[in-house]
Design a binder for these strands. Structure first.
Lengths: 228, 228
DNA sequence: CGCGGCTTTGATGTTCATCAAGTAAAGTGG
DNA sequence: CCACTTTACTTGATGAACATCAAAGCCGCG
């Protein structure tokens, strides 16, 4: 928890709060709460009452819920500037999805009351917020469509490229998720996710050391993601 | 086209415009445009410039785009009070998806400029709009998850129940879509959609006369939708 | 140090896509 | 209005893709 009013230095400021005047900024800044989470920590839980507007300052999280058989169903991964809590925040009283940290994560929480206040009194803020919301849902929907049109190999390749190109901006990285979680996200069985990874290793497209992945042949991986 | 200012009698008024004062109402009302579409007509096309805020007054539409192989991919069906044009309207300059009428459909168009104007000057309107947007994306995401966790029979049952319970509110109805379109929506092959329908017919759960469907055993159909 | 969860591979079975072929229905132009 | 073409619908047969089951090694954690 850190309540010092350092919001003017916050790199996320321009994303949402560029339109706030100094008085609005101070009000918001003085009552915002930052929270830190370790890998595996629960950030919000399906069913909990929604009281805050939550966004990611740093880290990585997964959004998920459970299907009827009690199996986890991962909806999306979110990184800073992605807008996690937004999905149901304005249409529900309680969260529909759970959010769990996959890496050390810092969130910034602002009460919904305060946000509602800003919407009521600052048109530019409303416009910005609406654009962000639109972006977020659009992105999730496009992800769903992207995955739906791929087969096993294509989906696994897509997933690896997601971490490599969008999260770590590196050809080598430590997978923040288990094989099982990848399976839950792309909608395939864990065993077949593993088989797909092994195949990519045998074809010398990636190297695998446990959770550590190195993409050796990026072009081929992209091709598999596009064609699969 | 019908530009008479009859918005106060419009049943959709309360959904979005309850917060407008009489002057705002008149401005909006005088410049809104209603359009009528026949079955099969294109309402908006992917790639077109977004200029209007479009909502359904009556009818039924499909949202779709094309995958790399040129095959249609149906994203969702929308009926009145569902908020079609909303998906990318505030995050893009052009439509990402096409919208086509499946039944005679009436839309009401308001320029984005006018809507932006309202957002800037009417906080309550902004709140209402944000809630609707949140609802819409939430619904689409939940649909995706619902379909993803079902098998062939479950998906077809789900689809039939959608038309029966959410669109026509009748046990008998005329399918507004082809078998192919059902397939494109639920992500299965056309042949297998037909086989699933035939199976339901053989099991005396539904009756089929071409496009006309009668649900005979609603309980069993619901069960298949839940378990499948 | 032992238990449970994660990972891996192989074997087997199910589900679904694809191909093929035919019928029915719905536009289309003379 | 009719022949013609195209599109939608239907069923069966085949094969591919994927899930499931089983068994074993590995790793982390209490």
């Amino acid at each position: 928890m850190d309540n010092t009013c350092n919001c003017n230095n916050c790199e996320i400021k321009d994303l949402f709060f560029a339109s706030l005047d100094s008085s609005q900024m101070e009000t918001m800044c003085s009552q915002k709460i930052e929270n830190e989470f370790k890998k595996g920590d629960i950030i919000t839980k399906a069913g909990d009452k929604i009281e805050d507007f939550v966004y990611l300052k740093s880290g990585l999280v997964k959004l998920f819920n459970y299907n009827d058989k009690g199996k986890e169903q991962i909806i999306t991964f979110a990184k800073p500037f992605d807008f996690v809590s937004l999905i149901s925040i304005f249409s529900n009283k309680t969260y529909e999805y759970s959010v769990v940290a996959l890496e050390p994560t810092v969130t910034c929480n602002i009460t919904l009351t305060e946000i509602t206040n800003l919407i009521m009194n600052n048109g530019t803020f409303s416009i910005n917020l609406i654009e962000k919301m639109s972006n977020t849902s659009n992105k999730i929907i496009n992800e769903f469509l992207d995955i739906k049109k791929r087969n096993l190999m294509g989906r696994v390749a897509y997933m690896l490229l997601f971490f490599s190109e969008q999260v770590y901006i590196e050809n080598e990285f430590e997978l923040p998720v288990s094989r099982k979680e990848i399976a839950e996200y792309i909608g395939m069985s864990t065993e077949n996710v593993i088989r797909a990874l092994s195949q990519l290793r045998k074809d010398k497209i990636i190297k695998i050391f446990g959770k550590f992945i190195e993409i050796v042949d990026n072009d081929k991986l992209s091709q598999i993601s596009r064609l699969g």
